[in-house]
Amino acid sequence: MESAPKRDCYQTGVKNIVKSLWKMKMILSHAFFAFMLICMSGCMVSGVEYIIDEPLNEAQIKEIQRAETTKQEILKWFGPPVAIARQGTTMKIPPPGPTKKGYEEVLSETFFELFSAKHEIIEGHIIYYYYYREIKGSFAAIGLLGTSKKRLVVSKLWILINDKTGIVEDYLLRTSE
């Protein structure tokens, strides 16, 4: 006669276990659904490599031939320079990035000094100055929480041109991290 309550107790226990397992399954499926929703909505990003500004086209730099390449070719390949240095003048260099306004005043002579050891600087010389900023990195984030690793690579290109002949005489590339 004592077996009936025991069975009841056993059945209730099994039921409770099944119930809790079911609950756990529901919680897990809800959590999975929420996770998928976050991923799909763009709140979660991971392992993305991102770049700010256009990277320097190194293959194009190799195309520059001293005493051969023309100013026209430089403009065609690299687009407008950030600044143009002309002897006895002050350059107005816009700060890197679209959000910053105004300009920085830099004496053109500071750029000519880069070439003065190898070249006799004459009146018709100009320098095209290009600036490239590249930020490479990866990050993982869910909502507002996240972690990231990044490194800033800055490349500066100076091209010495004889404006009277329109020919490139020399160029200098410096890259720093």
Binding site: L75, P80, A83, I84, R86, K92, P94, Y103
Partner: peptide, 14 residues
Amino acid sequence: IPAFQRVSGELFSF
């Protein structure tokens, strides 16, 4: 604009 005077002139003459 001071920062773009020279560059725009150069691009135009290009």
